[in-house]
Every structure is written in C-alpha cells, then in structure tokens.
Simulated scan of single mutants.
Amino acid sequence: MITPSQLTAVAELSASFADGNVDITSRSNIQLRGIQTKDLSSLVHGLELAGFIPSPLHDRVRNIVASPFAGLGFGEILDTQAFVRELDRRLVADQVMAGLPPKFSFAIDGGGPWFGRDRDDLAIRAVNVDNTPLFHLAIGGTLSGFGVRVDRAVDCILESARMCVEISKELEMPARGKRIASVPRAVNRLLDALSGFLVTCPFPDGSSDVGDMPVGISPCERVGFVNLVPSVPLGRLTAEQTLSIASIAKRWDGDIRLAPWRGVVFGSVPESSISQITATLAAVGLSSDGKDGYRGVAACAGSTGCDASLADVRRDASLLARRLAGRCAQPGWTVNISGCEKQCAMRSGATAELIASSSGYSLRINGQFIASNCSLESAIDNVAACQAEIPIEVFS
C-alpha cells in the first residue's frame, strides 16, 4: 500500500539520486539502483521524510504480503488491510522482532485469489468454517492443520515470530519458517507454544491460487467503480511513469497497490474515467490491455545492472516482447530470462527459461531441455512458437 505523495517522492528521489527508474520487486517492494555513495544519505533522508522508514531497526523484517486486491471486491472472505496495518505497527513496537533474519516474511491472505509465489515464513489464510471465518496457519509454506480466531490472528502470528527467534537460539538453526517446518522437533516446539491460540481447522481450498498477472479492468465492490491493472514492462517504471501513476491516483482518489507480479493496481477508480486514465497511461508507454508482449515475461538486472550477468537480458526481453506484442498470453504462461546460472530473483516453474552463457542462451520449455548456446533469435523463435502452441523445433 502506497500513497500518491509517497510515490511522487520515490520518483523525484530516483531522478535526483539514482538511475531515474523505480523497480517493483516480487515482494511488492520498491528498489532503487545506481545510487552513488555521496548521495546515499540524502536519499535515505528523503525516504524518511516520505514515511518509508518508520523504524530503521526493524526495516528489513517489515515484509508483510497480502493480496493487492485486499478490500477491493476480488472474492475474499476477509478484508486483510486492517490486519496488515496492525501487524506492521506491532512489529515496529517490539524489540524482539528486530532479531528476525532479513527478508523474514509474513503473509495475510483474505481467502481470495492469491498472487504471491514465495513460501512465506509465517502465513495465515482465511477459511470459512460453519459460516465463521478463521485463519489457517502455515509455516514456511507448509499448512499446519490448525487455525486461529480472527480476533487473535495478529497476536498468534507475532507469538509465532517470537518463537522462531527463540527456537533458532535453542536449536542453533536459522529462524526461517521453511527450515523450522522441516525439523519435527522445531515445528512441534512452535505449535506447542501456540496451543493457546490454535483450533482444529480445515485446509484452505487451493483452487483460488492463480498466480497470474490480471492485466486490465476488473470489478470493484463499489458500485460505479472498477480496478485497473496496467502492464509494467519487466517490473520497471521510469520516473515519468511513476509520477503519472501518482497523478492519476491523486486526481481520481484511487487506491495504489504494488503487486507481487512486479506491477501496480489502481483500486476503486471511477468507471466513467477509465478511458481518460488508460489514455494517460498510454501516453507514458504503459499498456492496459495486456497485449504489449510483456505479460508473464521476467528478467533479472542483466549486464547493465549486474557484473555477474553474461548478457543484456533486459534488452533481449524487450526484443522478445516486441515479437509477442498483439497476442493474448494464456493464463499462467511465464518466461524467465536470466543473465547467469544463479537465476537471481527468478520465479520457479516458468513455462520458458532462458539462461545466458558466454556463447548464447540455454533454453528450457515446460521443464524440457531444448538447446544450449543457442542464439537470441533462435530462443525467441522457440518461445514465440511455445506461446502460439506450435510444435517446438530444437535449435543448436
């Protein structure tokens, strides 16, 4: 959740002290690149003034993920916005929470379609039990079989986090949910400590997991209003595009959300203004129909932003998008383009995976190895054929 004034501040700070771009991450955060050491203190001061760092001590562990459509009428059992705000406020107020490892993540799922891809350290997901909502507890992506009452949900997840810190010290292991869930002694210790909160709970219905990028217009719970999701190519906005998004939200009193598909949601904007809004976005190069070729395409920083990268993968991803433009990608269709074998920040299980080497790309499609050291042109041909459901030719 971000305000127009905060988004404006980010754009201006990036233009003044970074490379002029605003990257949205897969955790729905913002990343600025190309900052010179001499400008760092000025940048941090600007972020503090905009309200981005309420607690420097806790900042690296304030990773709370919810649906970017929370409270916007997208099939949820519960609106999770208030839970997110309360958890954030209480994390900042608790000194123990500063002991969590960096990137420790919390997820609060209202029970509608879920768009995150990470196995969060601690997660609660709304389920209906005899017409009464409960939150089902998951640890490191593993469902526990237990739930917690809605009015005790934040207390439970905070106690769970405290126990992760305590268990890591007792058993000399990382305080990460996935690690704790894999060690019976650790997970049993955690569940025993939470016994006062937990009740038996059915497992959530996984059929609502979509994990796709819903570009375009969707219904909103408010009559006469809609939600709008524009395409953000490769998760990167220019300062000009960022200012345009902030201006739109301010003018039409929209609710801006950053999304885990590295994009943006305009929540609850007047349906009568959609043509004006989409025209304003188009003027700065942001499509609202999902046919710009970038849907489902992800790339790492590439050689322009990372010394380890063996190719300018962002340029190559743009060439692929140009080839795919005008088509409608199938739901769930994804492409990862990585500059090296590390595949930093890439989603798992992509339809097509391109990994750069010193002499070309290795290519996998639907998990099947297709070629190594193939040219960019050959890789693009294969990926385009895959999207069009044409038989794949193996290139060397």
Rank of each mutant, 00 (worst) to 15 (best):
C306M: 08
G141A: 05
P204S: 10
A70S: 15
W114V: 11
L234M: 10
C164N: 06
I245F: 07
L137C: 08
V183T: 14
P133L: 08
I139N: 02
A356P: 05
R90C: 06
Q95H: 12
I124N: 02
G235L: 11
D121A: 04
K250W: 05
G290F: 04
G235Y: 09
A161V: 11
S144R: 07
Q31D: 09
G290K: 08
T334Y: 03
H45Q: 13
L237P: 01
P101E: 05
S272Q: 11
P219V: 10
L78T: 05
F74D: 06
A15R: 12
K169S: 14
V335P: 00
T37K: 11
N63V: 15
G267C: 07
E393L: 13
G360F: 03
V44K: 08
G206Q: 13
A282T: 07
G141M: 04
V269T: 05
D381L: 01
F395E: 02
I180Q: 02
V84G: 05
V394Y: 12
L87T: 05
V84K: 11
A379N: 00
Q276C: 09
A350T: 13
I248P: 00
V199H: 11
N21H: 12
I256A: 01
L100D: 01
R149M: 11
F146C: 03
S359F: 09
V165L: 12
L228D: 11
P102Q: 10
G206E: 14
N128V: 06
I277L: 06
P184S: 10
G34W: 12
I124A: 04
C300L: 04
L376V: 08
R322C: 04
C300A: 05
N63D: 09
Q81P: 00
A350H: 09
V65A: 11
D253H: 12
A138L: 14
L320E: 01
W333G: 00
D59N: 12
V264F: 06
N128P: 09
A259K: 03
A356H: 04
T25H: 06
F115Y: 15
A15M: 07
T351A: 11
Y361T: 01
I108S: 01
S67T: 15
V199K: 12
L13R: 01
I392W: 05
D121H: 09
A98R: 03
E353A: 13
G147Y: 01
A175T: 01
D79T: 11
I248H: 02
C156S: 14
T80H: 03
I277Y: 07
V187N: 07
L87M: 10
T242F: 05
E271Q: 15
L100V: 10
L243K: 15
L143S: 15
G99T: 03
A249H: 04
G224I: 12
M213D: 14
I355Q: 04
T304F: 07
R257L: 03
L57K: 15
R189Q: 13
D381T: 10
K291G: 00
P204R: 06
A283D: 14
A345K: 07
S231K: 02
V394N: 12
G367M: 13
G367L: 10
L198N: 04
R33G: 07
G20A: 09
A66C: 13
F203Y: 13
L47W: 07
F266W: 06
A325V: 07
R236F: 06
P391L: 09
R85M: 12
A352G: 08
I35V: 15
E353Q: 15
G46W: 00
F135K: 03
S396H: 13
I248S: 00
